[in-house]
Nucleic acid binder design. Structure first.
Lengths: 348, 348
DNA sequence: CTGAAAGCGCTTACAG
DNA sequence: CTGAAAGCGCTTACAG
């Protein structure tokens, strides 16, 4: 491994001249200085010089490392697969400013496990982004442990350092589309109604609001209990006048699977509209009528917010907390799974 | 921020006594030493002491940081969504030995971009895991840049430092299941046959081998061109004697979507078997008959292999290259999408 | 503008 | 077993 010292020795100058040249600062316009700088650069190149991240960190007091907290672990590897899109966006935003991202699992924050995770045990991270639905004790622990936290998609909502999807709007967009398509009855399928993650509460609130405005009947179907009598009851109430509004793609799939056992297809035999999707949906289920959120962008923006709150991070207004943001959803008719009750089968 | 020095001052001892106590080494059994150690621990606790990762790295010469190279980026955020499962497994394996994982995108390895990515520009990583299908120039660049590389799921296959799924076995398992279920004709759907990623080549090789052994006709359908005349031709050849063997879940979904437009369902009107899945499939499409690979485990094992190849990583046999490994697939009947041609509809 | 010195926080030798 | 010293690779003051 080559160091500044080594380059300095080979070039016959001092270490900090090398440092100056390599960092692009303070090279004089004098002819000999320019020549020397060239030689230094060449030697550094020959030796394959790369700065030592640790040495830089120890001097600057900043590690340029950020953590992202997610729920996934060995026993719940995919409890929130969509997190991946946000992680990729986050990574891109951080990388642009020289920051590096690493993953922290919620389970690593448990008291008994804290000592196992070097990211928690040592001074390693300049800040963290908490992603999605987190237990109360996790929120507290993160606030205690890190000076800089961005709450992305979590139940924490403050004037600063939070970023969320506009979930009520998602419910409203989905329900309005249903009304406009002419459906007379709505079935809401999700796991929770008025508790849990803010997305559960607000998507349902948006749907309910639109339904009431238009005098439309809405029944609730708990998607977690899709097997047995209840599933049959649901399926018996499916018809061309009825639209199922699904909390997410997972619930939408369950409805389709259950319908299929009775020979019913979405779009044709009943309407199906989903309140949320991800980029995967576009490739795996493009025909789904849905509200779409850009989770990659959410991650990217969360990165911007965190960098803004970090002093000396190089972005504009660095060092001041970032005002909270809300991400808008977008209505997508899809391929589609909701033609409305007046749909006529066309021979192909 | 509290340092060893600060604790030492408060406790009236020297810095390295504090270091000794906190690292759990060399505390004598003498009564006064034990008392003192207790006091030091208490002070460290009160001050919320956390070791500085950079300082430790600079002394030990190891950063305890690992990179994982993936293809995903802003323009292809989900070109390989399944990578997430392996990343989570990798993260778990590394974390157990105090290592931290960060993400490197293939695009960050491009010459013009190298300088942008601190992970490449600086001495930051002790080693990397290359995940999935990588262009030749990426393989070369990684080998040149890093002393320790594990090739996971890539086209690189050497006696050491490589880990792969047994893809030929996957093709064989899928095709044998089809034969055992009584299907007479097979349709293979994937994008490539004899070139590209080793999974393309070997899954197809396994299927072909079994088909030939049993005198079964196999036709190939390029899933990338599923729209238009070709799709119609495919659909016309679907019937109860025929099974579609899909390269992956994505291709399986396309077949189902195309079939649906003609009112055909997998399992009932034709057979559908998939050569690969992921943990997501279990929740999103449990009825799919398939070969299953544990990508989380693949990541976890790749972590073990990398740690073994790193000197001083704390695992057994550290410092010696890890022999290459092959991960087995497992046959899953699923819910199912392949009952065989003799399936009789049962009233529900 | 360049060089010698000091120091970031820690650990690894080496004396007492 | 404990303390004073040296040093990891770099950068930030301070002299020449």
């Amino acid at each position: 491994m080559s160091t500044l010292q080594l380059i300095a020795k080979k070039a016959g100058v001092s270490a900090q001249t090398v440092s100056n040249v390599l960092s692009g600062r303070g090279v004089s316009k004098r002819r000999d200085a320019i020549e020397r700088a060239k030689r230094i650069l060449q030697i550094a190149d020959e030796l394959g010089y790369r700065p030592d991240a640790a040495a830089r960190a120890i001097r600057s007091g900043r590690t340029l490392q950020i953590g992202v907290v997610i729920r996934n672990d060995r026993y719940h590897p995919l409890c929130h697969q969509l997190a991946f899109e946000s992680i990729l966006g986050l990574n891109e935003g951080l990388l642009e400013q020289g920051y590096v991202l690493s993953i922290i699992r919620v389970m690593d924050l448990e008291s008994e496990r804290m000592a196992q995770s070097r990211a928690m045990r040592e001074n390693l991270l300049d800040g963290v982004v908490a992603l999605s639905y987190l237990p109360d004790w996790v929120e507290k622990r993160l606030s205690d442990h890190f000076e800089h936290v961005i709450w992305a998609d979590s139940n924490v909502w403050l004037p600063e350092n939070c970023i969320r999807r506009d979930e009520k709007e998602a419910g409203i967009l989905a329900a309005k589309a249903a009304v406009n398509l002419g459906y007379k009855k709505m079935i809401w399928t999700g796991e929770r109604l008025d508790s849990g993650h803010y997305s559960d509460i607000q998507r349902w609130a948006g749907v309910k609001e639109v339904a009431q405005q238009h005098g439309c009947e809405v029944t609730h179907f708990n998607g977690a209990e899709a097997v047995g009598d209840y599933a049959l009851k649901l399926l018996e109430s499916l018809n061309r006048q009825t639209v199922v509004l699904a909390y997410d793609v997972y619930h939408a799939r369950r409805i389709v699977a259950a319908g299929q056992t009775l020979g019913m297809s979405p779009g044709y035999d009943y309407g199906l509209i989903c309140c949320d999707d991800s980029q995967t949906t576009q490739s795996h289920w493009p025909s789904l009528s849905r509200v779409s959120f850009d989770r990659y962008e959410l991650g990217y923006q969360a990165a911007q917010m965190l960098l803004q709150s970090l002093p000396g991070s190089g972005v504009p207004r660095a060092g001041r907390p970032a005002p909270s943001r809300m991400i808008s959803g977008q209505w997508f008719l899809g391929g589609c799974t909701a033609w409305g009750p007046d749909y006529q089968t066309v021979s192909q």
